[in-house]
């Protein structure tokens, strides 16, 4: 199983890495656009938010399958902590689980907060269309005023043995205030927009949502395989140790049995 996970990991990792250029370029484009619109009253709701943060939606990305160490539990623990904290602040929390394991684990404590989620996505490597389904659903919920702020919690792939639980706010989209986008400020003024900035943003923001979801699922899948590989490696090693221990025990008791039988025969012969 370790070998299987290792080969799957390689594939998932390649997928996650090849998805990065799109997300990066989209971010750059969005940064340019958002920067030129920031602070204006006409900004779309996905960017500006609803003006409140009363209802919080948490998208929880976990695996569909277990046997991958602390992979699912660490996400669930993080979501529980976040949800608990938000509830304490008097906010309403909704949890949208992506992946079967996460839903099962969180149902006991936060059952009433769960809304219908997704399962079995990308069994053979996720496609963008599948991620788009998730995004469409989130957009739909947002349009129906079901929540104000959306955060995704997923495992970001760092290396085969390290996954980082990451929280990322999706709605309202956080405008990157500093960094490389700022450097483009001079060029920003020169950009022409066709059609208008608002129109582009209105179609770009939902796309961006889909891309961010896509990326988080890809990262999560790569992490899952990494976690499983480590877990299975540990399991194999542990099983090896146990086999060694048990073999010694077996031999000892076998010898004890033989010795006992010999003693019985000898003492029987002596009695005659």
């Amino acid at each position: 199983m370790k070998m299987v996970a290792a080969s799957k990991l390689r594939r998932a990792q390649t997928a996650a890495e090849s998805a990065r250029p799109f997300a990066e370029r989209m971010e750059r484009m969005l940064g340019t656009l958002a920067g030129s619109l920031a602070g204006q009253s006409g900004a779309p709701r996905m960017l500006a938010g609803t003006g409140k943060d009363d209802v919080q939606l948490i998208v929880m990305v976990t695996a569909d399958r277990g046997l991958c160490g602390g992979f699912n539990s660490s996400i669930v623990r993080n979501v529980k902590q976040l949800a608990g904290q938000l509830l304490k602040e008097g906010k309403t929390v909704k949890i949208l689980p992506v992946g079967r394991k996460g839903r099962e684990q969180i149902r006991r404590d936060f059952g009433p907060h769960l809304i219908e989620g997704f399962e079995g996505l990308g069994r053979k490597g996720i496609s963008f269309a599948e991620a788009d389904q998730v995004a469409t659903r989130i957009t739909q919920l947002f349009d129906e005023n079901e929540f104000d702020v959306c955060t995704v919690v997923y495992n970001r792939f760092q290396s085969a043995i390290a996954q980082v639980v990451t929280r990322q706010q999706l709605i309202p989209f956080p405008v990157p205030a500093e960094g490389p986008v700022k450097a483009d400020a001079a060029a920003k003024a020169l950009y022409e927009f066709e059609p208008s900035e608002e129109d582009i943003l209105n179609s770009l923001l939902p796309r961006n949502l889909a891309v961010q979801i896509f990326r988080s699922i890809l990262e999560s899948q790569a992490s899952e395989q990494g976690a499983r590989m480590t877990a299975m490696d540990n399991a194999t090693r542990n099983a090896g140790d146990m086999i060694n221990g048990l073999t010694i025990k077996y031999n000892r008791s076998r010898q004890a049995q033989i010795t006992k039988e010999l003693i019985e025969i000898i003492s029987g012969a002596e009695a005659l």
Binding site: A15, S18, A19, P21, F22, A23, R25, S127, F128, A131, E194, P195, A210, V211, F214
Partner: peptide
Amino acid sequence: FELVSPAKLLISSPVDMVIVPGTE
């Protein structure tokens, strides 16, 4: 010219001209 799909970077090469079907 860079053509990127969500799954990967499809094309990245210098070309003479690109004609793109814009919305307008």
